[in-house]
């Protein structure tokens, strides 16, 4: 359980980090909570490790009425404490344990793209995005691009980032007016990755009509987003039927912890719980 040899880089500024990534076959090291175990188990063997922990300017988060932009070095724990976005905060409480949240980063979790992770689902249900940077060798400077969530999660443990790209921040859009959100999951033990989980956003319009969107974790190759659209008046919406739609949208696999049937059943149960809780909150926000 010792990593294979690698060359270690500890750049101090973004330009140096990007140049290194452009030059070598490297991997970014952020909080290390996923990467270090993979190195120790020799499941990953990058020739170079680019430690971004000393890069200035990546730790800050920015809160605007439009949403929260989380910097690449913002730790789970900091973002959780800042409590700038109710759904993000709720989801972070479900991520691992305090010790891991003290080191692990929100952006690192997105890039890691574990299908059972909470944060990709949050980004996806909100329609957020990840800002990626790379070094343009010809132009001699950094190039940025904004990757929307629906393009970012490519597959299990696979994001849309190129090998020379660094995710500098992620943007979590604020909940629309009159919205409520919830995250429900079942994990084997406290703090474990979920067997299945559902996060939902329910927005209640001025007319009292509810719109809902849900995203599931642990039951697909990445977050499974279901746009449930208009569901009628929030007080009389058919949450059970909506939950069934969410359930039908997933095609979970069996593993050593749960059968596919159980996972699918859980999605239905959790979707209904999440939708009802989000609707209650949304209705309260709307004053309906």
């Amino acid at each position: 359980m010792k990593p294979p040899p690698f060359e270690y880089h500890a750049p101090r500024d973004l330009g140096a980090a990007l140049r290194t990534l452009a030059e070598v076959d490297g991997k970014v090291l952020a909080g290390g909570q996923s990467l270090i175990p993979m190195l120790n188990m020799r499941l990953a063997a990058p020739a170079h490790l680019v430690d971004i922990n000393r890069v200035g300017g990546l730790g800050a988060s920015e809160v605007t009425p439009e949403g929260v932009r989380v910097g690449a070095l913002a730790r789970h724990a900091e973002v959780e404490r800042a409590a700038a976005h109710p759904l993000l905060t709720r989801a972070l409480k479900l991520v691992a344990h305090p010790v891991i949240r003290n080191r692990g980063t929100v952006v690192g979790s997105l890039v890691h793209a574990d299908p059972a992770a909470e944060l990709p689902a949050v980004l996806a249900v909100l329609g957020g995005s990840v800002r990626a940077a790379r070094w343009d060798t010809a132009g001699g400077g950094p190039v940025l691009r904004e990757v929307p969530a629906e393009e970012f999660f490519v597959g299990p443990m696979e994001s849309a980032l190129g090998p020379d790209e660094l995710a500098v921040s992620a943007f979590f859009p604020a909940l629309p007016e009159g919205s409520g959100a919830a995250f429900e999951e079942v994990s084997r033990r406290h703090g474990d990755y979920a067997l299945a989980g559902v996060c939902a956003v329910v927005t209640v319009g001025a007319d009292g009509a509810a719109r809902a969107r849900a995203a599931c974790v642990g039951v697909g190759a990445g977050p499974v987003v279901v746009d449930l659209g208009e569901l009628g008046p929030v007080r009389r919406a058919g949450w059970k039927a909506a939950a069934a739609l969410v359930r039908e949208a997933t095609d979970p696999e069996e593993d050593i912890h749960a059968t596919a049937a159980y996972r699918r059943h859980l999605v239905g149960v959790l979707a209904e719980r999440a939708l009802r809780n989000a609707a209650r909150e949304g209705a309260a926000a709307r004053g309906a």
Binding site: V186, R188, L195, H257, A258, T259, A261, Y262, R263, H265
Partner: peptide, 8 residues
């Protein structure tokens, strides 16, 4: 016995 097994 796990939740999945109880469910089954």
């Amino acid at each position: 016995i796990s939740p999945s097994e109880l469910f089954e």
